[in-house]
Design a binder for these strands. Structure first.
Length: 364
DNA sequence: TGCACCCTGATGTT
DNA sequence: TCATGCATCAGGGTGCA
C-alpha cells in the first residue's frame, strides 16, 4: 500500500498565540522578537504574522530593520515556555490521528508528521478529510490555524504544507509528485539553502527537474556520498524515511549574546553559569547523562569557534559541566586575542541516566 | 589498513 | 546594514587493533 503522510505546520505560531491571547492585535502587524539585551532593538525576528509579512518583515531579520520598515508594528518578546505549553496540547490532538503511537513525529515546536497509511487505507481523498478534521480540531481546541500537506512521504508532505498558507490544505498524490516538484525553485526543496543552491548553480543546475536528471556520481563527487545521494533522491521525490517518535534531540545546548563584546571572564562566566543552569535543567528533566561538552564562541566578526571535550565517564553533575566549560573558555581566550560577542554551551553523547551518578565516579 | 571516536566549522532554519 | 538561537552533519584528525 502507498504510504499516506500528513505534515502539519502551525501558521505564524508565536504571533498567532499572541493574537489569541490579545484579540486587539488582530489586523495589526505583530512581530515576535528574540531580544539580545543590547540596546532597545538589538535582536532578531522570531516570527511575525501575515500583516507584518506583507510589509516585507520575515523571520531572522534584525528587529531594528523590522522596526524601520514598520514603526507602528506591535513588537513583543518571545515567551517560549508559554508557547511550548500550547504546542504540547496541540501535539496531543495530532497524535490522536496517527495509525499508532509509533506513527507520530514531532519535528519542532510547531510542526509534526502523522502517518495515517492504515487508517486512510492508502486513500488520499480520505486523507484530505482527515486533514480537514485535524485543522478543525486544532482551531476549536487551541484557537490556532495550521496548514496541512499530504503526500506519499515526509519530504512531499512537508513541502506541500507550505503551498497554501495560512490555513490551507494541499494533497499531492503519488502520480502528481513529478509535476509538483517541477514547478518549485531549488531552495524550496527541503534542506537546500542558499549555500547549496549556489553550489548547484555553479554546476549548471537551476531547477529541481535538472537536479533530478543530473548524474548521481557527479553530485556525490561535489557534495559527498550522503548529501549527494540525498539530493538526487529528494529531487526525484523519493524519501523512504519513516515517521517515528523522536527520543529527544541528541544534544542539549544554550547560547546567548553578551551585553557587550568582551574577554573579561568576570563578565563572561556569570553569563556562562546562567546558560549552564538552563542546560542542566533540561538534562535533569530528560533524566539523561552527558559525556561530551562543547563550548561555542562567536567573535565580533561573527565567526564561530567551538571546542569540545569528551569524558571517559558520563556525568549528570552541573559542577563538572561548569568546570569543563570554564576551562575551555579560558583555553580559547589564551589562544585568541579577540573579544567575544556570543557564547554557548552544549552537552552531547546523552544517555538515559539512572540518577545515581555521583562525583565519586569522576575522581579517577 | 580499517574502524571508531573525537573535534571543529558549515549549514539550514527561525 | 544588521546580525538570535538552536540542531545536525561532513570531513579531517587521531589512536588502536
Amino acid at each position: 500500500m502507498e504510504r499516506v503522510i500528513i505534515h502539519v505546520d502551525m501558521d505564524y505560531f508565536y504571533a498567532a498565540i499572541e493574537e489569541r491571547e490579545d484579540p486587539s492585535l488582530r489586523g495589526k502587524a505583530v512581530v515576535v522578537c528574540m531580544y539580545s539585551g543590547r540596546g532597545e532593538t538589538s535582536g532578531s525576528v522570531s516570527t511575525c504574522n501575515y500583516v507584518a509579512r506583507e510589509d516585507g518583515i520575515h523571520s531572522g531579520m534584525p528587529c531594528s530593520r523590522a522596526k524601520a520598515i514598520n514603526p507602528d508594528a506591535v513588537f513583543l518578546p518571545v515567551r517560549k515556555e508559554f508557547y511550548r505549553s500550547v504546542s504540547d496540547s496541540i501535539m496531543e490532538i495530532l497524535r490522536g490521528y496517527a495509525d499508532s503511537s509509533e506513527s507520530f513525529e514531532q519535528v519542532s515546536i510547531d510542526e509534526a508528521f502523522v502517518d495515517i497509511t492504515r487508517t486512510s487505507g492508502g486513500d488520499f481523498e480520505q486523507a484530505r478529510i482527515t486533514g480537514m478534521q485535524m485543522k478543525d480540531e486544532v482551531r476549536e481546541q487551541a484557537g490556532i490555524t495550521c496548514s496541512v500537506g499530504i503526500g506519499p512521504n515526509k519530504l512531499i508532505a512537508k513541502m506541500s504544507s507550505s503551498v497554501r498558507k495560512p490555513d490551507g490544505i494541499t494533497v499531492i498524490r503519488p502520480d502528481e509528485v513529478g509535476n509538483f516538484l517541477k514547478l518549485l525553485k531549488l531552495t524550496k526543496l527541503w534542506g537546500i539553502g542558499k549555500v547549496t543552491e549556489e553550489q548547484l548553480q555553479e554546476m549548471g543546475i537551476e531547477t529541481i527537474e535538472q537536479l533530478a536528471a543530473h548524474d548521481a556520481v557527479d553530485l556525490i563527487t561535489v557534495f559527498g556520498k550522503s548529501k549527494g545521494t540525498w539530493l538526487k533522491k529528494a529531487a526525484s521525490g523519493i524519501d523512504d524515511s519513516p515517521v517515528k517518535e523522536r527520543g529527544g534531540s541528541d544534544q542539549i545546548g544554550r547560547m546567548a549574546t553578551l551585553p557587550q563584546n568582551t574577554r573579561d571572564t568576570g563578565l563572561i562566566f556569570p553569563e556562562l553559569d546562567r546558560l549552564i543552569e538552563d542546560v542542566m535543567g533540561k538534562v535533569s528533566a530528560r533524566k539523561v547523562s552527558y559525556r561530551s561538552v562543547t563550548v561555542t564562541v562567536i567573535t565580533p566578526d561573527f565567526r564561530t569557534h567551538t571546542k569540545s571535550r569528551t569524558m571517559n565517564h558520563p556525568a549528570t553533575d552541573s559542577a563538572i559541566l561548569r568546570e569543563t566549560a570554564r576551562e575551555m573558555f579560558t583555553a580559547f581566550l589564551n589562544e585568541d586575542s579577540r573579544n567575544l560577542r556570543r557564547i554557548g554551551v552544549r552537552v552531547e553523547n546523552l544517555r538515559k541516566s539512572d540518577g545515581q551518578t555521583s562525583l565519586l565516579e569522576f575522581t579517577d
